[in-house]
Amino acid sequence: MVTATDECLFCAITERSAHVVMSDETAVAFLDIRPVFKGHVLVVPRLHVETLTDLPADLVGPFFTRVRRAAGAVQEGLGAAGTFVAMNNRISQSVPHLHVHVVPRNRKDGLRGFFWPRTKYASAEEAEDYAARIRAALDRAA
Results as ranks from 00 to 15, higher is better:
Ser92Thr: 13
Lys108Val: 09
Asp32Gly: 03
Pro117His: 07
Lys108Cys: 12
Val103Ala: 08
Ala136Phe: 00
Arg112Leu: 11
Arg118Trp: 05
Arg34Glu: 10
His101Phe: 11
Arg107Met: 07
Lys120Gly: 01
Val74Thr: 06
Ala73Leu: 13
Val49Asn: 03
Arg107Tyr: 02
Thr83Val: 15
Arg112Thr: 15
Pro56Thr: 10
Ala122Met: 06
Phe37Ser: 06
Ile33Glu: 12
Ala57Ile: 09
Ala122Asp: 15
Val49Gln: 02
Phe63His: 05
Ala124Met: 06
Ala136Gln: 08
Val85Met: 08
Arg118His: 10
Trp116Tyr: 14
His99Pro: 06
Ala57Ser: 09
Val41Leu: 05
Phe37Thr: 07
Thr51Arg: 15
Glu25Ile: 08
Val36Ser: 01
Val102Cys: 02
His40Gln: 09
Phe115Ala: 12
Phe84Ser: 13
Thr51His: 02
Asn88Leu: 14
Tyr121Pro: 11
Thr26Gln: 09
Tyr121Asn: 13
Val100Pro: 05
Ala131Leu: 10
Arg69Met: 03
His101Val: 08
Gly110Tyr: 15
Val43Tyr: 06
Glu128Thr: 10
Ala124Ile: 01
Ala71Pro: 00
Gly113Leu: 06
Glu126Cys: 10
His101Met: 13
Val74Trp: 05
Lys108Gly: 15
Val36Asp: 00
Ala71Phe: 03
Gly77His: 07
